[in-house]
């Protein structure tokens, strides 16, 4: 976890993603349908990466589309799905049911504890729960430890040190300082525990501007930054835009159908679009602009979610 001291880490998306190797342990930032690192996910798919081991808290289309394209071998998220609104994650579900990925479902608290062990440079940390839950069956690496002070038996979990954390931020500078809006979810912990952080930002600003907005993730933790407007789409990246519920619906329908319908979606939005610029053009400037209109009025905001 050596600090990253280069003074200029601004690269294009292609180069940022090229450093991620097949089989890497990848932490995905953001959560549910908010601030997901979708441009990085799309570029991983364009570059044909495979064998990834993904880890995170509660996620949706980022993990599901990586699974749909055969990019993932091991999934260690605490949840993958589209909540009550759009339901189960179709590709995740299919891959788990047919055994084409290894499901190591975990728990937000356990992941947090494992990241802290990595941050502290410790060989393990204990968690109080997990006992009595079958989640333990998915993790033969867990052990038990007896507290030397109280005699209590606790579950011991090893450190989690991702090879790379993928994070999307509304604002950052060339050095890699990132400003995020809350909720940060696990992004701060991922940044500190991972060997590398590859970030996309809606906009690159001056060091002064980022400092004034507030640095959430400092440059010394970040290895590369790429400027990608709408880099979280179809997830939200407030204050710039709300999530694109209709697009998520389109994906879930295609992924549920599978076969040619899914192939068509993947070709249309991912493999068929060589760059993010092409992707934005396909989604449409009007549509993207509409997602930014949430702030005009409560009615406009509500209307986006109908």
């Amino acid at each position: 976890m050596a600090f990253h001291l280069d003074t200029d880490k601004l690269v294009d998306l292609d180069r940022a993603v090229r450093s991620i190797e097949d089989g890497a342990l990848v932490a995905l930032g953001g959560g549910l349908s908010a601030r997901l690192p979708m441009a990085l996910v799309r570029e991983l798919i364009r570059q044909g990466r495979s064998g990834l081991h993904v880890v995170g808290s509660a996620h949706s289309i980022d993990v599901d589309v990586l699974i749909a394209t055969g990019t993932v071998t091991v999934c260690e998220e605490s949840y993958v799905g589209f909540e009550q609104d759009l339901g189960l994650a179709p590709a995740y579900r299919r891959a788990a049911e047919t055994g084409t990925i290894e499901v190591r479902e975990s728990c937000c608290v356990t992941i947090l504890t494992q990241l802290r062990a990595a941050e502290f440079g410790l060989p393990f940390l204990p968690v109080r729960g997990v006992k009595g839950s079958d989640i333990r069956r998915l993790h033969p690496e867990y052990r038990e430890v007896v507290c030397p002070f109280t005699g209590e038996t606790l579950v011991a979990v090893p450190p989690l040190r991702p090879d790379v954390a993928l994070i999307h931020a509304p604002l950052g500078d060339r050095r890699g300082n990132l400003h995020l809006d809350q909720p940060y979810v696990l992004d701060e912990r991922f940044a500190a525990a991972s060997r590398n952080v590859i970030a996309t930002v809606e906009r690159v600003g001056s060091a002064e501007e980022v400092a004034a907005a507030g640095v959430t993730i400092p440059a010394h933790l970040v290895s590369a930054v790429a400027e990608v407007p709408y880099g979280a789409h179809p997830a939200s990246c407030y204050p710039a835009y709300a999530y694109d519920r209709a697009h998520l619906g389109e994906y879930v329908r295609a992924a549920t159908a599978g076969g040619s319908e899914l192939a068509e979606y993947l070709d249309r939005y991912l493999t068929g679009q060589p760059t993010e610029e092409a992707y934005r053009k396909l989604v449409g400037a009007d549509r993207l602009a509409a997602l930014g209109q949430w702030s005009e009025s409560i009615d406009a905001w509500k209307e986006l979610f109908r």
Binding site: Y79, G81, A89, E97, V109, G129, K131, G132, I135
Partner: peptide, 20 residues
């Protein structure tokens, strides 16, 4: 578990939170 009929979304933080 090895070959689920339905893979549900997952538990989020529940397996620790339910303890305390």
């Amino acid at each position: 578990l090895e070959r689920p009929k339905v893979k549900l979304g997952g538990g989020g933080g529940g397996c620790n939170l339910a303890a305390t």
